[in-house]
């Protein structure tokens, strides 16, 4: 694989935009009082992204939190709004507590469709 170093980008998916647009649902409304809704999921995603944007793009926590938000979007697309909220909660916990960071000399690398992304120990 060609090792092209890709800067971490936090481009949101089309799904995010679709969710944020508040799409109408015309199938049976089977929501139940007290159970999470698409609206709540959408709001939580928006809040999560707002918090995410305040972290440095060099931050490993920011990368981890972004991945949690992507999982939240996938759950929303499947209609699993409770799991959507759980992933947003994980993202916020990561942002608030910075469970992942890279000390000088440490690296994190993950494959992407075009190569890999890499972060190195400069995210303090």
């Amino acid at each position: 694989m060609n090792g092209c170093k890709i800067r971490l980008q936090l481009a949101f998916t089309a799904l995010s935009l679709a969710l944020l647009s508040g799409s109408p649902v015309v199938a049976e409304d089977a929501s139940h009082p007290g159970e999470p809704t698409l609206h709540e999921c959408t709001e939580a995603l928006r809040d999560g992204r707002d918090k995410l944007s305040k972290l440095s793009t060099k931050s490993l926590s920011r990368y981890f939190a972004e991945r949690f938000l992507l999982s939240a979007e996938a759950e929303a697309g499947n209609g699993e709004y409770d799991e959507c909220l759980e992933y947003v909660e994980k993202a916020v916990d990561e942002i608030d507590n910075r469970w992942h960071w890279l000390a000088p000399g440490e690296k994190f690398r993950a494959t992407t469709s075009t190569g890999f992304m890499e972060l190195s120990g400069d995210d303090q």
Binding site: A14, L15, A74, S113
Partner: peptide, 26 residues
């Protein structure tokens, strides 16, 4: 897979999976 519904075209991987040539498709 879960019951219910899905909005993604599952002949494609999600972009986040990092599979060459594949992006999230609906």
């Amino acid at each position: 897979n879960h019951g219910g519904s899905g909005n993604r075209d599952c002949r494609f991987a999600d972009t986040s999976a990092g599979v060459p040539g594949e992006t999230t498709t609906y």
